[in-house]
Simulated assay, not measured.
Amino acid sequence: MAEKRDITRHRKRLTLRFGTVTPTRLAYTEDVSANGLFIKTTNLCPPGTRIQIELTLPGEDSVFLEGMVRWTKKVPPQMIHLMKKSGMGIMITKFIAGEQAYRSFIDELHAR
């Protein structure tokens, strides 16, 4: 199936925490873009859920943001490392802190 989005996505593994009220669940990104990210996890939230995310950029900069779950793909926990996509696609809806650090990080990925 062909990619329908025209936004450049970069494969990047970053540590993050997420949750519906406070970011407490540990996970990783699979890819990132200027408008969203993919969280690799077996702890899924239903599409439409607003979640809080604390993302750790290289260099230990932290970014706090709010996102909305756009889609999910559920995979059994023992299979998560074998599947290409297992987790949640997130659309960034609001930056709480660290927006400039995140934008600079994405710009740096575009320049490579």
Score class of each variant (00 low, 15 high):
98 G>E: 00
21 V>K: 15
22 T>F: 08
45 C>P: 01
31 D>E: 11
17 R>T: 01
7 I>N: 10
71 W>K: 05
111 A>N: 11
32 V>F: 03
34 A>L: 06
98 G>N: 06
55 L>T: 00
69 V>E: 01
56 T>A: 10
99 E>W: 00
14 L>E: 07
106 I>S: 11
43 N>H: 14
101 A>P: 01
10 H>R: 10
93 T>M: 08
59 G>E: 15
48 G>W: 04
46 P>S: 06
16 L>V: 00
87 G>Y: 08
6 D>S: 15
50 R>E: 00
33 S>F: 04
63 V>D: 12
105 F>Q: 05
99 E>Q: 15
104 S>Q: 11
61 D>N: 06
96 I>W: 05
14 L>P: 10
38 F>Y: 12
56 T>L: 10
62 S>A: 08
98 G>R: 01
83 M>Q: 09
67 G>F: 03
5 R>P: 07
68 M>S: 10
29 T>G: 07
51 I>P: 08
30 E>A: 05
47 P>R: 09
67 G>K: 10
3 E>I: 15
66 E>L: 03
70 R>V: 02
41 T>A: 12
81 H>T: 02
32 V>E: 02
7 I>H: 12
84 K>V: 12
31 D>K: 05
68 M>L: 07
82 L>N: 06
40 K>G: 03
56 T>S: 07
45 C>L: 04
97 A>H: 13
51 I>E: 00
71 W>A: 04
1 M>P: 01
78 Q>K: 13
66 E>H: 13
65 L>N: 07
2 A>Y: 15
63 V>F: 07
22 T>E: 04
27 A>C: 09
29 T>F: 05
26 L>M: 14
22 T>S: 10
85 K>Y: 15
79 M>S: 02
96 I>S: 09
73 K>C: 02
25 R>L: 05
72 T>G: 05
110 H>D: 14
31 D>R: 06
7 I>K: 09
109 L>M: 14
34 A>V: 08
89 G>P: 11
109 L>T: 10
29 T>E: 05
48 G>D: 00
66 E>M: 09
13 R>P: 02
90 I>A: 06
3 E>H: 14
75 V>T: 04
21 V>A: 11
4 K>R: 14
75 V>Y: 11
19 G>W: 07
15 T>C: 12
12 K>M: 13
12 K>T: 09
41 T>N: 04
48 G>Q: 01
11 R>G: 08
54 E>T: 02
54 E>Y: 03
90 I>N: 05
103 R>I: 15
101 A>V: 02
111 A>R: 13
51 I>N: 06
44 L>H: 02
5 R>A: 10
91 M>N: 04
58 P>D: 14
104 S>D: 15
71 W>R: 11
4 K>V: 06
57 L>P: 12
102 Y>L: 09
106 I>A: 12
